[in-house]
Computed example of a mutant assay.
Amino acid sequence: MDDQSLDVVFDLLADQRRRYVLACLIDHTEAIGLADLAADVAGRENKEAVTKPPKEKVRTIHTSLYHIHIPKLVEAGVVEYDQDRDLVRVSETGEQIEHLLTVAADGGEER
């Protein structure tokens, strides 16, 4: 991976919501609906709460995924988005950054 590619990956991983999106997509072997992805991300962001995140929070996350995060991840080639079917999945490139995502989740301690 060259320096420019590494900069793109670090930019993508700099945002916690995008890290949650990638973690969720890596956890799923199949494409996931954008609404389901938003609910999963809301749950990850609301991890301390016992109850499900409020619908308004899920709706807000859905909007940010649709307008900001998914387009940025698609442009970088990390995810694929089928707008007609409203499905998102991690691309082969995204699978390659799984290790970096794991290192980031562990607080930077590589094992």
Rank of each mutant, 00 (worst) to 15 (best):
M1K: 07
M1V: 09
D2L: 14
D3A: 11
Q4K: 11
Q4N: 12
Q4L: 12
D7C: 11
D7F: 09
V8P: 08
V8S: 11
L13G: 05
L13K: 01
A14G: 15
A14N: 15
D15R: 12
Q16C: 13
R18C: 04
A23H: 08
A23F: 10
C24M: 14
C24V: 14
L25Q: 02
L25I: 00
L25N: 02
T29Q: 15
E30M: 14
E30A: 12
E30H: 10
A31P: 06
A31I: 06
I32F: 05
G33A: 09
A35G: 12
A35K: 12
A35V: 14
A38T: 01
A39H: 08
A39Q: 10
V41N: 00
A42N: 05
R44Q: 07
N46Q: 11
E48G: 15
E48C: 13
A49N: 06
P53K: 03
P53W: 04
P53C: 04
P53R: 04
P54A: 09
E56L: 15
K57Y: 01
K57S: 05
K57A: 06
T60A: 09
T60W: 07
H62L: 07
S64F: 08
S64G: 08
S64D: 09
Y66H: 13
H67L: 09
I68D: 10
I68A: 08
H69S: 01
H69Q: 01
I70F: 11
P71V: 00
L73N: 02
E75S: 08
E75P: 06
A76K: 04
A76G: 01
A76R: 01
V78I: 08
V78F: 04
V79T: 00
V79G: 00
E80C: 07
Y81L: 02
Y81C: 02
Y81S: 05
D82K: 02
D82W: 03
D82S: 03
Q83L: 09
Q83S: 15
R85A: 10
R85C: 06
D86E: 08
D86G: 05
D86A: 06
L87G: 05
L87I: 03
V88H: 02
E92K: 11
T93I: 11
G94T: 04
E95V: 10
E95F: 08
Q96M: 11
Q96R: 09
Q96T: 10
E98P: 07
E98R: 12
H99M: 15
L101H: 02
L101S: 00
L101D: 03
T102N: 13
T102P: 12
V103M: 05
V103E: 01
A104R: 12
A104T: 07
D106C: 15
D106Y: 13
D106H: 15
G108Y: 05
E109M: 13
E109L: 14
R111D: 10
